[in-house]
């Protein structure tokens, strides 16, 4: 389990994260959403130990990730938004790197890569950005670790690959894994991420499962305008409106509309979900 308490981080005088507290539980795929510059990547790099917490604490199974203990590193994988080209064939890269992750499975790597239609014998420094990303995604999923920190994993992927990514994510991540996905491409991962975390500058606006969200908010796709709507958007087929769920009726969560509703009515939503401030 990951425990974050009163986390704060700044780049010089520029404060990025402040007063962040939350728990990340096993068996979930968290969607980490937020506007540009709110600190999503910073949070992921703090979680995996690439950065040191300046104030507050992060504990992953009781350990400080910045200690970079080998046993914790072998239990996690951080996939950066932009990945490094390596002067090696994809299959050699996987074979050489995979030895450090005890649950790494080379067949799984080859299988995912085949689904992405990437040639494993291709040199990684000769790959396109999309192919390179797919190679890293395949490697990450083949590691079968307990903690995944994926920063914009669908960036640079073509349309079929996004669907393949979702399938591979569901198929290859262990059941008790905690996956944190930072993304702006909410539609790519709408059906996969649950719970949803919405970060704001210096705050967590929302950290709730889709069931909890659907219990508190109603997503109306009809054409009739509701005056209580927290957010309303015209769509080609009608509208999407978000308003407090007074009747307890179930609706399908639209993550993009949710994000906009939360940003438009931060205090209302925080009060509604009792977000730990």
């Amino acid at each position: 389990m990951i425990q974050i308490d009163n986390l704060a981080f700044s780049y010089g005088p520029k404060e990025v994260l402040k007063n962040i507290s939350m728990e990340i539980l096993p068996g979930n795929i968290y969607g980490l959403l937020g506007e540009n510059g709110v600190g999503k990547t910073t949070l992921l790099t703090l979680l995996c130990g690439l950065k040191k917490v300046q104030s507050g604490s992060i504990r992953v199974d009781g350990r400080d990730p910045f200690d970079r203990q080998p046993s914790l590193l072998a239990d996690q994988f951080y996939l950066a938004d932009e990945v490094a080209p390596v002067h090696a064939k994809a299959i050699d890269f996987a074979r050489e790197h995979g030895v450090f992750w005890p649950n790494f499975n080379l067949d799984a790597f080859s299988g995912i890569l085949a689904e992405f239609e990437v040639d494993p014998s291709q040199k990684m420094d000769a790959m396109s950005a999309g192919q390179l990303k797919k190679t890293y995604i395949s490697f990450a999923l083949a590691c079968r670790v307990r903690y995944y920190y994926l920063d914009e994993p669908t960036n640079g992927l073509d349309i079929p690959s996004k669907s393949q990514f979702r399938k591979a994510l569901m198929k290859y991540t262990p059941e008790d894994a905690s996956v944190v996905i930072s993304t702006h491409q909410v539609r790519d991962l709408e059906n996969v991420i649950d719970p949803i975390i919405i970060l704001d500058r210096r705050d967590v606006l929302l950290n709730a499962s889709t069931a909890q969200i659907a219990e508190k908010l109603y997503f109306d796709y009809s054409t009739q305008i509701n005056p209580d709507a927290l957010y309303l958007e015209q769509t080609p087929g009608g509208t999407v409106q978000v308003y407090p769920n007074a009747t307890g009726e179930e609706s399908k969560v639209n993550v993009e509309a949710l994000f906009n509703a939360v940003h438009a009515h931060k205090d209302v939503v925080k009060a509604m979900f009792h977000t730990n401030l």
């Binding site: 790099t45 995996c48 130990g49 690439l50 970079r68 203990q69 080998p70 046993s71 590193l73 072998a74 996690q76 994988f77 951080y78 950066a80 932009e82 990945v83 490094a84 790197h97 450090f100 992750w101």
Partner: peptide
């Protein structure tokens, strides 16, 4: 010192001493 390659290096499960 490169963000991408350096991150890969640091995330390899071996200790600092090793």
């Amino acid at each position: 010192t490169d963000r991408q390659k350096g991150s890969n290096y640091l995330m390899i499960p071996a200790s600092t001493l090793e």
